[in-house]
Amino acid sequence: MKLVNNDGQNTDLIIEGETATFKGEEYDILIHDGEISVAGHIATNNFIVKEEYIEEMVERFKSRKGNVDQYNGFAGFMLIKKEKKMSVLTGWDSIKDFTAWVESEAFQNSHVKKEQRVKSQGSDYLEAMPVRESFSVEG
């Protein structure tokens, strides 16, 4: 899949079996729910996890089955990992569907409040603030 960010920069997402190549690096796919490969829009949340919390973070995502999966336009979820780097990828039918999710109360409760706390207090789990990216899928 060819992904294009808001600045017009391209990257590929290649899903092969239990691995994914993202931004030129190979990751292990730890969770793959839904059909991210048919999405028209992909949002990512990229973070570096402190070594001692990697397994706990993976377990948290395995038990996540929450609001996002039920949201209109949601196509799929993927958690990928390479050493301490993890990325959550969510696939959406369209940017409009993704924007509706971001503006929802469920998103605000599950993401924004946590980010505000991490910014002010730091995180026991993460080495730095997560980096969000948004991509249109082309071709």
Rank of each mutant, 00 (worst) to 15 (best):
L3I: 04
L3E: 00
N6H: 05
D7V: 08
D7E: 15
Q9C: 02
D12H: 05
D12A: 15
L13D: 00
I15W: 00
I15L: 12
G17T: 03
A20C: 15
T21E: 10
K23H: 09
K23E: 14
E26V: 15
Y27L: 02
D28T: 13
D28F: 10
I29G: 01
H32R: 12
V38E: 13
G40F: 04
T44P: 00
E51P: 11
Y53F: 14
M57P: 05
R60K: 14
R60N: 15
K62C: 11
S63G: 03
R64D: 03
K65R: 09
K65E: 11
Y71H: 06
F74Y: 07
F77G: 03
F77L: 05
M78R: 02
L79C: 03
K81N: 13
K82L: 12
S94Y: 04
I95E: 15
D97I: 01
F98T: 02
T99M: 12
T99Y: 08
E103Q: 10
E103H: 07
S104K: 06
A106V: 05
H111K: 06
H111D: 09
K113F: 15
K113D: 04
V118R: 06
V118I: 15
V118A: 04
Q121S: 13
G122Y: 10
L126I: 08
E127A: 11
E133W: 07
V137Q: 06
E138H: 13
